[in-house]
Design a protein around this nucleic acid. Structure first.
Lengths: 344, 344
DNA sequence: CTGAAAGCGCTTACAG
DNA sequence: CTGAAAGCGCTTACAG
């Protein structure tokens, strides 16, 4: 069967069929007040019958509005990221925007490349979570001069734009305070080596909670790693457990690190939470699958995504003449489970 | 600071600056053989200096090639889906294509809507995993007449196009055979009620393995559910365990259902795998976090994604005049872990 | 109420 | 080797 691709029907074809001008057909379809009701009805009827669908490419090209948003994230298959993406897709769709997604793989070079192509494709705005160790912000600024950008999750104060984050510091403070209230005294932290925005803030919350409750800061139980994975959570926990004075609680700044911690504790038959309590960060699916279930900070990914889209579209619709660094904080909740308040 | 958005530089501006025609500038940048080396150098130098980036929208609009691929999946934050997406993004990028992603949320109406917008946006091709209970295939066919489509994962033989799947039947056969070889005799299955392609195939593999090894098919230990979740895996396992004659193994057609099964077994203190062995399907992250670690079928998501892109781009570049239903099977591996071959 | 025409930024057959 | 012109499908100020 020969199926050389059908072309989509165009305004021109509609116009010919109806003996009208292209302009009139265009206006009729857009419900322009100038056009008579009869004409509108004729046009719309035929358009429906012929399955006319406007070429958005042409329209966007004409009007400089493409109704496309670009999204750049370090890793699309990271659980938390994918819930944010879900929120972004939903909100964008609701408002009639399509979304182009790409991955920077935590490479700054790639990130800049993506930023440029997004711009070339004429997206109306860009949502971005920064690659780790983003330093050459000037390239980002360059694109920012051409198209609105909203940062989320991995943000940087060096980029003057709207930034959507969670209340990192406060969330960490609450998590650590929860442990303190349970009577824990030597609370270790597993964090990132690099000064990522998130790690820094969570660390700050940890320090503030200790200070606030008059607990000393002990260098030895502050552990860091480049790649905050299950394996490294495990490794660092083993280091913590080999200390003369073991911690009685571990606050890991990600669920994965916390799960690694639990695995390490299991291996040594250390009771959770009685001997060592564990708290994570993210409320990933894993946190309910691990035994005991993990106490963790719920990060509402879809809310972050939706909020980011809202602010971005707002900026698209109402271009500011001012560079504004606005930080929007999304609230989180501590979800207490057996790894800190266990009954077993 | 006033930052009214900068416009991108255009061919016209380059041409004016250089006292050349737009055509010449265009050709120089595209390295057209007609243009003299000196001119090319002049043009390219200025282009670089002024950070010229061609408007891909205009180019695509002109040439009817947009270098955009559309992707439609039921649920973007489903783990397996997100690894496929990763593969898609990587392969697409490698070949110079951008990717627009959207979610059908398992709604057929939404799926058709997305298909239409993708087409309107002028994507060069579409990658799609079908929504559950997709019945009105005619709308898909309608779009298929206009733009190449490649299906993956959730496919349907009713759509005559390239389909990328895993060796579902064989994988299930191997999984069940593995249980039989371990000496299991009453092997239950937890599958989907609806006749989804995947569930059907896995069920067929289950039946074939039993037949092949001379085991009877027992209706009572064949359980189905609409939504194959952790909760339902748990529920159905409880039903299985309440039978006079309990199964000695459970083959769940998804990891989530298998995890639910393990949770149910735990609750009743039933030994895994000695009393009841469990096998899942997907090799999700969860499968290594649950205790005992889950024996499961590894589905190479990124391979599926990459392969789908390859076939799609191939069709874009070499439009066929024939409707071809081609099924490409990606091989999987059974990953044996403690839930079937445990040492504890 | 309707139409002719310009133009969005690019490519490319045609002419010289 | 270079340029003028058409055209991709649409919208919209201008004219009538």
């Amino acid at each position: 069967m020969n199926v050389s691709k059908k072309r989509n029907i165009t305004l021109k074809e509609l116009a010919q069929e109806l003996n009208l001008s292209i302009s009139t057909v265009s206006r009729a379809l857009n419900d322009h007040p100038d056009i008579s009701i009869e004409t509108k009805e004729r046009v719309q009827k035929l358009a429906k019958q012929l399955h006319y669908a406007p070429n958005l490419f042409a329209r966007g090209f004409r009007s400089h509005e493409t109704y496309m948003l670009g999204v750049i994230v370090p890793n699309i298959s990271h659980m938390f990221t994918s819930t944010i993406l879900k929120g972004i897709l939903e909100e964008a769709e609701l408002r009639g925007y399509r979304v182009i997604i790409s991955e920077s793989k935590n490479s700054e070079t790639k990130q800049i490349e993506m930023l440029r192509t997004m711009n070339q494709f004429g997206v109306d705005g860009i949502l971005m979570s920064l690659a780790r160790k983003t330093t050459r912000v000037d390239e980002v600024l360059n694109v920012l001069e051409r198209v609105p950008i909203v940062l989320f999750d991995k943000v940087s104060s060096k980029v003057p734009c709207t930034q959507i984050v969670i209340n990192e510091e406060e969330a960490a403070f609450n998590a650590v305070e929860h442990l303190i209230e349970l009577g824990k005294q030597r609370i270790a932290i597993i964090k990132e080596t690099e000064n990522s925005y998130n790690s820094e803030k969570r660390y700050a919350g940890y320090l503030r909670a200790l200070n606030h409750h008059g607990l000393p800061i002990r260098k030895k139980i502050i552990q860091s790693t480049e790649d905050i994975s299950i394996a490294n959570g495990r490794r660092l926990t083993n280091i913590l457990l080999s200390l003369k004075k073991r911690p009685d609680a571990i606050f890991a700044i990600t669920d994965n690190a916390a799960i690694g911690a639990i695995k390490a504790l299991h291996k040594l038959n250390i009771k959770i939470p009685d001997e060592v309590a564990v708290v994570g960060f993210s409320n990933s699916v894993n946190s309910t699958i691990i035994q005991p279930a993990l106490t963790t900070v719920d990060q509402p990914g879809d809310r972050i995504g939706r909020t980011a889209v809202k602010f971005l579209i707002d900026e698209i619709k109402n271009p500011k003449n001012e560079i504004v660094t606005k930080t929007v904080e999304i609230k989180t909740n501590l979800i207490v489970r057996d790894s800190s308040l266990g009954t077993n």
